[in-house]
Design a protein around this nucleic acid. Sequence first.
DNA 1: CATGAATGAGCCTTCATTCAT
DNA 2: CATGAATGAAGGCTCATTCAT
Lengths: 195, 195, 195, 195
Amino acid sequence: MTSRKKEKYHQILDAAVKVFAENGYHKSQVSKIAKVAGVADGTIYLYFKNKDDILISLFQEKLGELVEKFHTSLEHISNAEEAIRTICHIHYTELEGNIDFAYVTQIELRQSNMEMRVAIGQAVKPYIQLLESVVNQGIKSGQFRADLDVKLTRLLLFGAMDEVVTTWLISGQKYSLSEQVDKSVEFFLKGLKAT
Amino acid sequence: MTSRKKEKYHQILDAAVKVFAENGYHKSQVSKIAKVAGVADGTIYLYFKNKDDILISLFQEKLGELVEKFHTSLEHISNAEEAIRTICHIHYTELEGNIDFAYVTQIELRQSNMEMRVAIGQAVKPYIQLLESVVNQGIKSGQFRADLDVKLTRLLLFGAMDEVVTTWLISGQKYSLSEQVDKSVEFFLKGLKAT
Amino acid sequence: MTSRKKEKYHQILDAAVKVFAENGYHKSQVSKIAKVAGVADGTIYLYFKNKDDILISLFQEKLGELVEKFHTSLEHISNAEEAIRTICHIHYTELEGNIDFAYVTQIELRQSNMEMRVAIGQAVKPYIQLLESVVNQGIKSGQFRADLDVKLTRLLLFGAMDEVVTTWLISGQKYSLSEQVDKSVEFFLKGLKAT
Amino acid sequence: MTSRKKEKYHQILDAAVKVFAENGYHKSQVSKIAKVAGVADGTIYLYFKNKDDILISLFQEKLGELVEKFHTSLEHISNAEEAIRTICHIHYTELEGNIDFAYVTQIELRQSNMEMRVAIGQAVKPYIQLLESVVNQGIKSGQFRADLDVKLTRLLLFGAMDEVVTTWLISGQKYSLSEQVDKSVEFFLKGLKAT
DNA sequence: CATGAATGAGCCTTCATTCAT
DNA sequence: CATGAATGAAGGCTCATTCAT
């Protein structure tokens, strides 16, 4: 029973990614998602509160998986520099490898009202916190500057990577996103300064 | 004649900033903007092609002014480090000082379809190019690392600042944005590394 | 299921005849039709593509019924003169007996754009063809002149009857339309000439 | 002064024929007519009460000229048969030679509400009366049947010709309209009957 | 659990008309 | 007489959501 429920739940989410990515959030009708998912319109509302909820759930679900991946990959990495590199690598490659999800994340998800953004903020928090813990770890180990403002730094890191992904996406993915990892990480670690 | 035209044009844009900031783009009726601007609904369409055009024009107009400010402020600054600091300072303080515009820029503007994002991209370009020229100048002067990927770096800088502003905005502006300038700039210049 | 669907479909068409006849096509709001039909505005669009489609469907539906009547009545009539008389009789009496439909047919239907007129032309075709077949039959039987241009004649017949109906309608139906049958038919058969 | 007035009046009417014929009445903006006429929007309202009035005036004006032509041509024709032939000839050739006006007359003019149709009816009246007088004359001279219902006959004649023109127009003017004169007149004179 | 027909609120845009200049 | 910027009423259509089956 529960597994069947989950099954349909994921059917709908999978359909939603496709439809949102193809048409954009506002131009995606719930009925279209239902059609792609192979369920009736009304069935959507047995699994989701409303259309917004589909987008939020979609994001939470997928981001949850992603954060899972981050944690798994970082499990045996104690070196902060290496951790930063790993995070950036996963961030870029995962989105590069799943353009539909990337599209929803970088473009459609921003088409949200204030309430939704708060919900989305909650979903992103684990990732932001992951960044924070890595920075903290780096400071503790002496690899990173002790005077870093951790709360600010995590934003700067996330924002920088986020912008790179979005620009790559809007450009039409004309170049390799994963090839930007090394230079991005180098910027994070060494900054702009020559010395 | 032309000045009167411009007058009404700006009346409408000023009204639009307020209305968009207060209600969000999709929940802002054109008639509401007209009311706030003190013109008839139809008058809007003498100055703008449609609702989207209001948002785009608004952004272009205001961002144009902002880029103007950047250029003016940078005119007598040849030091690349100082230029980065100035840019970040203006970026943060201008948006901190004009929350309505910040809101439209950081939140509402993202609620746009692909076509609009392209138009917006065009408007942001001058700013991105400004960042690029500063980075180039820093490399040339030897202040910045010669191996920087300029195209990537400008995105990392912009994305980092952009995220800081958005997060500050969504947090409810509970802290000072302009106080983040120094630490942000330090991150840009020195990166994460301890040495 | 299907019968219920048909039910609502005809509910809407019946409402449309009334509303169009009373207010004219352009001054008839879809919402008014919905109200009279006892359905929600949106329901209209489950059965019709748009407002134009209502008018076209209405015409096709009703004219279809009418052509049916013509065929039924002509089934056992082999005499061409009698056939002409029957057609004219049905044409006048049916419209006289259904003023709302007559109004829509003679007045509102003409308020259509070129695209609609093409669709309408298609619907009228069976009737025009009926006229043609009767004329052909009359020629074959020797009752009608062999040198008649059939394609032209059918138009002259239709146009003449059509104008009589329209004029009667615009006059405010101050006289009996069906009483015009004999004289009309006599004109068709004998023309103007004295001999 | 008056002549100048008339000048602009006709400028506008000429523009209106073109614009109505090209776009249809409902899709023709007053501003478009003004543009084509080379006057300001507001100027239109110095010469016409409203948009409807343009169409009606246009029709009255042009039809007046046409009726004038009818009268001139019929001046020296005392033979009723010949008169019918002349009328049909002028009716077809004039409209064939002025497709814009034909379009407005046969298609756009029908896109009118009840009030307009009454006004139009008034304008057509002289033509209908002309037909009536010819029929009367034919009866008096013994050329036409004495038992003709004159009021009905004039409608049958007008309606028949009108339909021929409209069908020719909608067909895309693929054949010669003026070549239909002889057969049409023959139908009017001899009717359908063989003997 | 699932369906899908029905609902009905909501809004951008057009354009005939006016009137201050 | 002429202008044309400004007006503002008006309505077709969409689509998220519901609920009887």
